[in-house]
Amino acid sequence: MTHVSRTDLNVAAWRKSSYSNQAGGDCVEVAEGFTGVVPVRDSKDTTRPGLVVSDRAWSAFVGSLK
């Protein structure tokens, strides 16, 4: 699995879920551009550390939501 440092996550280009809204619902952001992994964080509190999951685990998670 690719190593992702805290610095990498601080400068990452985060993309908010299309299901996020201004009402403060359960929101998630993902960062793109990392090989083999997907960084994920809570868009309501971006100061907390993100989680890094394998791209295969992320694909399985997203697929289970459809």
Score class of each variant (00 low, 15 high):
residue 1 M to F: 09
residue 2 T to C: 05
residue 3 H to F: 10
residue 4 V to F: 06
residue 5 S to L: 12
residue 5 S to Y: 10
residue 7 T to P: 02
residue 7 T to V: 12
residue 7 T to N: 12
residue 8 D to V: 07
residue 10 N to P: 00
residue 12 A to G: 12
residue 13 A to Q: 09
residue 13 A to N: 08
residue 14 W to N: 10
residue 14 W to L: 12
residue 15 R to G: 02
residue 16 K to I: 03
residue 19 Y to G: 08
residue 19 Y to N: 12
residue 22 Q to K: 12
residue 22 Q to N: 13
residue 24 G to C: 11
residue 25 G to N: 15
residue 26 D to Y: 02
residue 26 D to K: 03
residue 26 D to P: 05
residue 27 C to D: 04
residue 28 V to I: 15
residue 28 V to R: 14
residue 29 E to C: 07
residue 29 E to L: 06
residue 29 E to D: 13
residue 32 E to N: 04
residue 35 T to P: 07
residue 35 T to M: 02
residue 36 G to I: 02
residue 36 G to W: 01
residue 40 V to H: 08
residue 41 R to G: 06
residue 41 R to A: 07
residue 41 R to F: 10
residue 43 S to P: 03
residue 43 S to D: 13
residue 44 K to L: 09
residue 44 K to S: 03
residue 45 D to M: 11
residue 46 T to M: 07
residue 48 R to G: 07
residue 48 R to I: 05
residue 48 R to Y: 01
residue 50 G to C: 00
residue 52 V to F: 04
residue 52 V to G: 06
residue 53 V to D: 01
residue 55 D to P: 00
residue 58 W to V: 02
residue 58 W to N: 06
residue 60 A to L: 04
residue 60 A to P: 00
residue 61 F to K: 00
residue 62 V to S: 09
residue 63 G to P: 00
residue 64 S to N: 05
residue 65 L to P: 05
residue 66 K to C: 01
